[in-house]
């Protein structure tokens, strides 16, 4: 069964139609890369999945559960939306780390706050907190940041910040982790370390949607690639096929702009 089903998502801002009838499915443990020219709606799509935008119409299902259906009028309570959100994680282009917390605190914070809602929070406060810290610490080890746990974001390089942000998103164990151009804000020599981490997640079959302008990376790491153009899915398929033998003229033109891939 597909882990994610997106059906007929539309999104309009005022009169501009930013997403027009987006439908696709994803299998658990696969990686999807989302490519397309600037303004084609990639960020908006990720934001819809993460409930930062509300689609104008369409349905979003995760593991068969309908998380969003525009045709069902619902005034979901904050708690409900938060629960739904947690199926997804989002790594931002600009990291958005919390500056007043150390790397470790950044990773552990949300989990601790969520734990407040657990019934045994009062009794086991100490051990739960301990558990969260250890988990965060372990994640930072995985990101190759063992010696950076007590540093504040301003003391870290962009690449390190982004790896902390990835650890922070992983800490909540989302079903699907989304990346919005995770390396676009980085100096070229720092993109490698972030891409390597994402690649290792793909090897461990984390389900991921990656918006990227790194065409070689999109081709190599993804199981499926979607090329978006003007709010539509123009072409979708195996990266080898899409990159080597694009069916649509618009895909060809777009890829020609990335000669040498």
């Amino acid at each position: 069964m597909a882990i994610l089903e997106v059906e007929h998502i539309r999104k309009t801002f005022g009169k501009t139609e930013v997403l027009r009838d987006i439908s696709f499915q994803m299998e658990k443990g696969t990686t999807l890369s989302l490519i397309g020219s600037s303004g084609s709606g990639k960020t908006t799509l990720l934001r819809c999945l993460n409930f930062l935008e509300t689609p104008t119409s369409g349905i979003i299902r995760v593991n068969g559960e309908t998380l969003f259906d525009a045709s069902v009028v619902s005034r979901s309570r904050e708690k409900e939306i938060r629960r739904k959100r947690l199926h997804f994680g989002l790594v931002f282009q600009s990291f958005n780390l919390f500056p007043q917390y150390t790397a470790l605190q950044n990773v552990a914070l949300a989990g601790e706050l969520l734990a407040h809602e657990r019934e045994d929070w009062r009794q086991n406060r100490k051990s739960i907190r301990q558990e969260m810290q250890e988990k965060a610490s372990h994640l930072l080890d995985q990101m190759g940041l063992s010696d950076r746990k007590e540093n504040y974001p301003h003391q870290l390089s962009g690449g390190q910040c982004q790896r902390v942000a990835i650890a922070r998103a992983l800490a909540l164990e989302p079903d699907i982790l989304c990346f919005d151009e995770p390396t676009s804000a980085l100096d070229p020599e720092l993109t490698g370390e972030v891409l390597r981490v994402i690649r290792s997640l793909a090897e461990r079959h984390m389900t991921m949607i990656i918006v990227t302008h790194e065409m070689a990376f999109a081709r190599d790491v993804a199981d499926t690639v979607i090329f978006m153009d003007q709010g539509e899915i123009c072409e979708m398929g195996d990266p080898k096929d899409v990159f080597q033998n694009p069916q649509k003229e618009r895909t060809r033109q777009f890829l020609a702009g990335y000669a040498g891939v």
Partner: peptide, 30 residues
Amino acid sequence: IPVGQEEAGLVLGMTHSQIFFKVKLLQMIK
């Protein structure tokens, strides 16, 4: 305070009041 702070908190499942008190308040004071 950049909207990214609020959005990062939301995506991490925080409530609006948690975002205010745990994320934004100290940045505002500073």
